[in-house]
């Protein structure tokens, strides 16, 4: 039950894009079409889960025992960058079709602050773990999956709206990003309705 609550909380109540403001760059950059939004969302889901597991292991078995928590930022960003590269190479070899679908999004993910953000939250055990032990692995993985699903959800809804937005007459100065930001603001308002759900 607590795991379901973690997912709901990470996905809807504390949506990473609309409530925490992480991962805004890909949110604004890639969300022109629903199809690409799904692709980006899946790539993030994949990398975020993987990155959370690896950074959790590094935090628990290297940084904490050695007492060098201050190396966290350096270590995590290197791990994520290396991980993304590796995923890219492996996907290319093993599943060319999946690589075709996700490949172009992977380089963009290294600088996606949502990934590093979740890794740091999990590493410090400061995410909302619904009463479970925040320093153990399973709640962390569930939290990462919930967050990524929330990212995907926001991205897909946003892309759906923007597809229609393209056909509307918008004042010159508001075209493009400003209009998209206004839409994001209205979406954030809507997502505020979820608060207090868990």
């Amino acid at each position: 039950m607590a795991y379901i609550l973690i997912i709901i909380s990470a996905m809807l109540v504390n949506n990473i894009v609309l409530a925490q403001f992480l991962g805004i760059c890909p949110f604004l950059g890639v969300s022109g079409k629903v199809k690409t939004a799904v692709g980006m969302g899946s790539a993030v889901l994949f990398v975020m889960t993987l990155a959370t597991i690896v950074t959790w292991l590094v935090q628990t078995y290297i940084l904490n025992p050695l007492g060098i928590q201050f190396m966290q930022t350096v270590a995590f960003i290197l791990i994520i960058a290396a991980l993304v590269q590796m995923v890219e190479i492996i996907l290319k070899k093993i599943s060319p079709s999946l690589y075709q679908a996700l490949g172009i999004f992977l380089p963009l993910i290294t600088t996606n602050c949502a990934i590093l953000g979740v890794a740091i939250l999990v590493g410090n055990g400061t995410y909302n773990s619904m009463g479970l032990d925040a320093t153990s692995l399973l709640p962390a993985i569930v939290f990462a999956i919930g967050t990524a699903l929330g990212f995907m959800l926001a991205l897909v809804i946003f892309a759906g709206i923007r597809e229609h937005l393209a056909k509307l007459p918008i004042p010159e100065g508001m075209k493009g990003v400003p209009a998209a930001l206004v839409v994001a603001g209205i979406l954030a308002l809507a997502f505020m309705g979820f608060s207090g759900l868990v």
Binding site: L18, F21, G173, M174, P178, L181, V182, I186, A188, F191
Partner: peptide
């Protein structure tokens, strides 16, 4: 209140960008 909450951030930035563009 909405301006210190999440939606206000998006609205604020949107109009800020539009003004600077002008």
């Amino acid at each position: 209140l909405v301006f210190v909450l999440a939606p206000g951030a998006f609205f604020g930035l949107a109009y800020f960008i539009a003004v600077v563009r002008r």
